[in-house]
Design a protein around this nucleic acid. Sequence first.
RNA 1: UGCUCCAUAGCGUAAUGGUAGCGCGGGUGACUGUUAAUCACUAGGUUACUGGUUCGAGUCCAGUUGGAGCAGCCA
Length: 462
Amino acid sequence: MTQLSVKDLYTKDLEDNTTVSLEGSIKTIRGSKNISFIELNDGSCFKSAQIIVKKSNENFEQISKLPIASTITVEGAFVKTPDAPQPFEVHGEKVELVGRSDSDYPLQKKKTSYEFLRTIAHLRPRTNTFYSVFRIRSLAAFAVHEYLQHNDFVYVNTPIITSSDTEGAGEMFRVTTMDMDNLPKDEQGHVDNSKDFFKTETNLTVSGQLPEEAFTMAFKNVYTFGPTFRAENSHTPRHASEFWMIEPDMAYTRLPGMMDVAEGLLKYVINYVLDHAKDELEFLDENVKPGLIEKLQKTASEDFARVTYTDAVKLLQEADVEFNVPVEWGIDLQSEHERYLCEDVYKRPTFLTDYPRDIKAFYMRDNDDGKTVAAADCLVPGIGEIVGGSEREERYDVLNDKIKEFDLNPEEYDWYEDLRKYGEIKHSGFGIGFERLVMYVTGMENIRDVIPFPREPGSAKF
RNA sequence: UGCUCCAUAGCGUAAUGGUAGCGCGGGUGACUGUUAAUCACUAGGUUACUGGUUCGAGUCCAGUUGGAGCAGCCA
């Protein structure tokens, strides 16, 4: 007799009446005078195993009254049950208590609100919904690495503590070891950062893109996949203060090729999850987001839409819809516009390309028209922007001018300009918000529910 | 940060300005195989906090705190 997991019982094709040994926690328990039914879960898979405990068992009185979440060990016969809702059960001949749960265990056999579950983020992975979400998150992360590695990308770990303001992507979290009650000051009364740990002001990174580009020049195709931090005071279901980003960057690649990789990556992740999380997706489809599986299959099999900003503006202006903000060429499109394009016009993930240069970052490559940059954002129904990318300005002189034009401090970008000074290489890259991808794949509608312990303005619990 | 909505038992919720109720969960018991088992009984409340209006406030008003949504910022 060997110690098995619940997953083993479902997958190992055991002989009827094999004696097995299990350890796990009680998901639910139903009892009558002479028999108890325990759904035993050990985390090895979504499903539980039904354990039968009969009155003849010496621990029957104790076991049959255990609260949910108590942990037990079970030894007994694996018996196939072709006529029952579950494929097998285990007749617990020897059942022993390991740890009794308290009866005030807050997860009841009924739906509870996501808001409440966020207050018990340390217990919610034990629910069916969050178990599914976080297993899928893990599978999606693996699929990202697998896709990129198979396509000859090199994984680069860029610094999390940074002294540069990357791209002005947002407010940053200050990192310091200075005594906040007794800050060293210079002669003008300003805080003297030269007395700090790094002898300069440092922050948590908002993006690994700029340092990553140094590795593009050496390895051709590279990517980062790690945490990033934004101190924005955003209160939306799509923003978190700490989130994970995937940032591929590709040398000798232009915008269309970049979009192909982004689209290929998203589809690969979706297909991987469809293949490896059937139980979890079925549960989410039935209980969280009806139609989820069909939506994912459709996304994985259709081409994404591609439209230029300029054409999109025309579409929006001709649309038979009243927008709160009227559309004219040059504006940064609002959520309502983006939603209309991908949810009503194209009804699928949509790349918007070639934005006005004035509303995009300095490092994006100028197009020949002098008005637009070679940028592409991917908008996804229900979530909005999931990918943001561009060709990088590789022309030394143009980049130099743009740094000045965007009012950035050239000294800080010395090293970045060196990447062009020592051999210009055309390259493109993009960033994917990993949580937004997980939201899309799981059907969850709030970013707080796809991060194990979310960080947001006003809250860093657990 | 701006605007809007919400806060009642552990959870989900009900209650014209007039005795705070129900379901789930908990406890006790019944039941010969259940599938979120079923049935009976039972405990559990300073209605988020502070103040106001009123004969009387869960309900109306003001403020505070917490939560959610929309917008902006973005991924």
